[in-house]
């Protein structure tokens, strides 16, 4: 028996899909193949385990399908009933609309239909027109809007003030920095100028002395003559 066949036989055996003769033959075969017997036992164990544990199957949500059919069904029924009047569907619609309009008119004539406009808008009512109670009056709305506006303005003002402060601080800082920088530059420049002057003075002094010496030697030479 090939391995593939053995596998198939094991499953057949395990699930009772063998006739008596096949079963007998396979059992005999198993006796001479202990490793196959062991494998079969393992499969059996696993199978038993599957059957031994309870299963929790949650409740199913109700299906919507039945209505799919019943709606069609009731549609058919009403069509049959309408057959008494023998009307087409368009005529039926018009008839229905006309009928409901008549009913409304009739009801209106009994209860006194009212239609008009208030400061809140249009109204259509049977009997007394009910003025909506507990609603906000125009004055309240205006006051509310004013309040909101005021709050907004205050908020904006504070915001602008804060921003201006911040900007001022920043500008001041920048100015201070510039100031320090220029002061520094000026000092350096002054020192450079002072240096330059000193050098010039020294040079002038040196020239004087040279001139003196030259004059001295000229005078000396002249007096020797």
């Amino acid at each position: 028996m090939t391995k593939k066949e053995a596998k198939k036989r094991m499953i057949d055996y395990l699930y009772g899909e063998m006739d008596d003769q096949e079963k007998q033959e396979f059992e005999q075969y198993l006796q001479s193949h202990p490793e196959l017997k062991k494998e079969l036992d393992e499969l059996k164990d696993t199978r038993n385990l599957l059957g031994s544990a309870p299963e929790d199957i949650p409740e199913q949500k109700p299906l919507i399908i039945p209505s799919l059919f019943t709606s069609e069904e009731s549609g058919q029924k009403s069509e049959k009933r309408a057959g008494i009047l023998n009307l087409s569907s368009a005529a039926k619609t018009i008839f229905a609309a006309a009928a409901s309009f008549l009913i409304i008119l009739f009801g209106a004539s009994l209860s006194g239909l009212q239609f008009g406009q208030t400061e809140h808008g249009f109204y259509l009512s049977f009997g007394e027109a009910a003025v909506p109670a507990g609603t906000i009056s125009e004055e309240d709305v205006v006051r509310l809007i004013d309040q909101i506006r005021e709050e907004n303005a205050m908020m904006m003002a504070t915001m602008i003030e804060e921003t201006a402060d911040q900007q001022n601080a920043r500008i001041e800082e920048a100015l201070n920095l510039m100031n320090a920088y220029y002061e520094n530059r000026r000092q350096q420049d002054l020192m450079l100028i002072a240096d330059g002057l000193n050098q010039l003075e020294e040079e002038t002094h040196f020239r004087f002395r040279q001139t003196d010496q030259a004059l001295g030697s000229i005078i000396y030479a002249l007096s020797n003559h």
Binding site: K4, K7, K8, M10, I11, D12, Y15, E42, L43, D45, T46, R47, L49, L50
Partner: peptide, 21 residues
């Protein structure tokens, strides 16, 4: 049948790994 066989085998292997069997 082959899938059944391998399925049972695989199941057993998983359970054995979990020390259940």
């Amino acid at each position: 049948k082959s899938r059944m066989y391998y399925g049972l085998k695989a199941l057993r292997k998983v359970l054995k790994k979990w020390n259940i069997q």
